[in-house]
Design a protein around this nucleic acid. Structure first.
Length: 386
RNA sequence: GGUGAGGUGGCAGAGCGGCUAUGCGUUCGCCUGCAGAGCGAAUCUAUAGGGGUUCGAAUCCCCUCCUCACCUCCA
């Protein structure tokens, strides 16, 4: 039904959720200090496609997205603008939701703002200290990565390599690669109380707490951008294992590749950011979907406007097909429809699926037929609004 | 140094064992007072290099060369 590449095992695996027919998916969400750009859009559209496909196979999806409002970048921008960090993050949170709507992403069931979870985070840190997975050094709390046997496996790094990273630098850390859970040493002008001291919950533990509060001891898919594999996902997995006492609390680690521009990563520091809303306004979400889905999710996309526009004629063909859709699907097209879904089922091979869709359209416009029902189902799967 | 993704026609970009996409471009028609847009048709027969597997490879295996990204906050 669905084969999917698991970054943890580096293999394409048969997908079987813990509690079928429900599929629990966690997606690393936005840090709330700026608008959604094309790279973010690709991430959420990919999981939207995954969910829509899973639904056609009889699954029910439960998607959780964390909304990072406690974060250095948020604090910094709030200071620059002279406003409360919460006001700032709330603004971008609303804008994010608007962007998802523009992108026709309706598959996300829960949004979890980290600031609503600080008490839980503190509780979980206390318990990690108790279990000796975490320790205090110079007031800060760190996770002892040596307590996790195969730490580094997800990001495919040896202990030696991990040791080279200058991770969350501070005095008296047990291991160079240990990461911070609770920051007590910096003054942000505000702090929260934990049993272990006043401070700010740090990056990685936020997701783990959000996940365990919402999903409990296990879930099926952990998603996010490729670049999050280290240190973020590695750290999250270590914490989550310690919290759940399970060896495999997450079935599939699914990483979406980056969007580049002129061969370079899209990022604010390089000044080549393209906002999702601008693209949707200018070209429409249909075109954007066709463009992004015509590259496999594990492959980088080098964005340029020309390539996006190339899908125009394809979109037109789809629109013409919709006008020609009839009451019955002919056999040759029926076979192609099967191939369309089979392609998606094979590690979400959307470019191949689109190829079949194009063949379907070509035939339907010549001498074959596709039923309105079959056609609509394909559109729904891809999230196209024709 | 480590990890991952790639190298396809003039260009962009799919296909991932046999049916050789698609788009841009180019050329020719139709349309038009001209131009553009639009429509129709034709055109380019490609797969980094070298071995191998196979009846058959762009597609699988090995070697070489090259490109890019990530490994620090970034999605």
């Amino acid at each position: 039904m669905l084969k999917i590449y698991n970054s943890f095992s580096s293999k394409i695996e048969d997908f079987e959720p813990f509690d079928p027919p429900v599929v629990k998916i966690f997606i690393c969400g936005p840090t709330l200090y700026d608008y959604t750009h094309l790279g973010h859009a690709r991430i959420f559209l990919t999981y939207d496609l995954l969910c829509r496909f899973l639904k056609t196979r009889g699954y029910k999806t439960d998607v959780l997205v964390n909304m990072t409002d406690i974060n250095q970048s948020v604090f910094n921008k709030a200071i620059v603008q002279g406003i409360d960090y919460h006001t700032l993050s709330q603004f971008y949170s609303n804008e994010f939701i608007k962007d998802l709507d523009l992108l026709n992403i309706k598959t996300i069931a829960r949004f979890a703002h980290v600031s609503d979870y600080v008490k839980n985070i503190s509780k979980h840190i206390s318990s990690l200290i108790e279990k000796r997975n975490a320790y205090s050094a110079n007031g800060n709390i760190y996770f002892d990565t040596k307590t996790i046997k195969d730490y580094g496996k997800l990001s495919k790094q040896s202990r030696k390599q991990l040791n080279l990273h200058r991770m969350d630098i501070g005095p008296n850390k047990k291991n160079q690669e240990d990461f911070m859970l609770w920051n007590c040493s910096e003054d942000f002008g505000f702090s929260w109380k934990g049993d272990f001291g006043k401070g700010v919950p740090w990056w990685h533990i936020q997701d783990s707490s959000v996940v365990i509060e919402n999903f409990g001891l296990h879930y099926d898919v952990h998603g996010g951008a490729d670049e999050l594999a280290y240190p973020h996902h590695e750290a999250h997995l270590a914490q989550y294992k310690a919290m759940t006492d399970l060896e495999t609390p997450v079935k599939i680690w699914m990483h979406v590749s980056l969007v580049l521009s002129k061969g370079e990563k899209i990022s604010k520091s390089r000044g080549n950011v393209v906002l999702a809303r601008d693209l949707v306004t200018k070209y429409g979400q249909n075109l954007l979907r066709l463009y992004l889905f015509s590259t496999h999710y594990r492959k980088e996309i080098d964005y340029n406007e020309k390539n996006l526009l190339r899908n125009k004629s394809f979109l037109k063909k789809i629109q013409q097909t919709s006008l020609r859709a009839s009451h019955k699907t002919s056999e040759d097209i029926s076979a192609l429809i099967q191939e369309f879904y089979a392609s998606l089922g094979n590690d979400l091979n959307s470019p191949k699926a689109l190829n079949f869709l194009e063949k379907i359209c070509t035939k339907a416009l010549k001498n074959s037929n596709i039923s309105i029902e079959d056609f609509t189902r394909i559109m729904d799967t891809l999230g196209l609004r024709i």
